[in-house]
Amino acid sequence: MKIYLLTHPRELPKPTNTGKLVTEVLGASVRLVEWSRIGPDAELLQLAEQGALALIYPGEGSTELSAALADAGLSGRLKGLVVLDGTWQEARKMFNKSPYLQKLPRIALEVSEASRYSLRRNQKAEGLCTAECVAYVLQTLGRGAEAKRLSHRLEAFIEAYAHRK
Rank of each mutant, 00 (worst) to 15 (best):
149 R>S: 08
89 Q>C: 06
30 V>F: 05
95 F>G: 02
140 T>Q: 13
52 A>L: 04
126 E>V: 10
52 A>E: 09
38 I>C: 08
129 C>Y: 00
8 H>K: 03
118 S>H: 14
148 K>W: 07
64 E>G: 02
130 T>P: 01
128 L>Y: 10
24 E>Q: 15
89 Q>M: 09
101 L>T: 00
108 A>N: 08
46 Q>T: 14
47 L>D: 09
71 D>L: 10
156 A>L: 14
6 L>E: 01
65 L>M: 09
151 S>Y: 03
111 V>H: 13
130 T>C: 05
27 G>T: 09
75 S>C: 14
86 G>S: 12
147 A>K: 07
72 A>R: 13
139 Q>Y: 09
103 K>V: 06
82 V>R: 00
83 V>S: 02
93 K>G: 04
56 I>P: 00
20 K>V: 09
142 G>R: 10
54 A>G: 07
136 Y>M: 10
161 Y>H: 15
153 R>H: 05
21 L>Y: 00
146 E>S: 11
58 P>V: 11
31 R>Y: 05
138 L>S: 03
65 L>K: 02
64 E>M: 04
18 T>L: 01
92 R>P: 05
39 G>S: 15
159 E>V: 10
114 A>C: 11
157 F>C: 06
89 Q>G: 13
64 E>Y: 03
42 A>K: 14
144 G>P: 01
152 H>N: 14
68 A>C: 06
126 E>N: 09
52 A>T: 04
156 A>C: 10
99 P>C: 04
13 P>F: 09
150 L>G: 00
18 T>D: 02
85 D>M: 02
142 G>Y: 11
92 R>V: 11
118 S>T: 12
57 Y>N: 07
43 E>V: 12
135 A>G: 11
52 A>D: 04
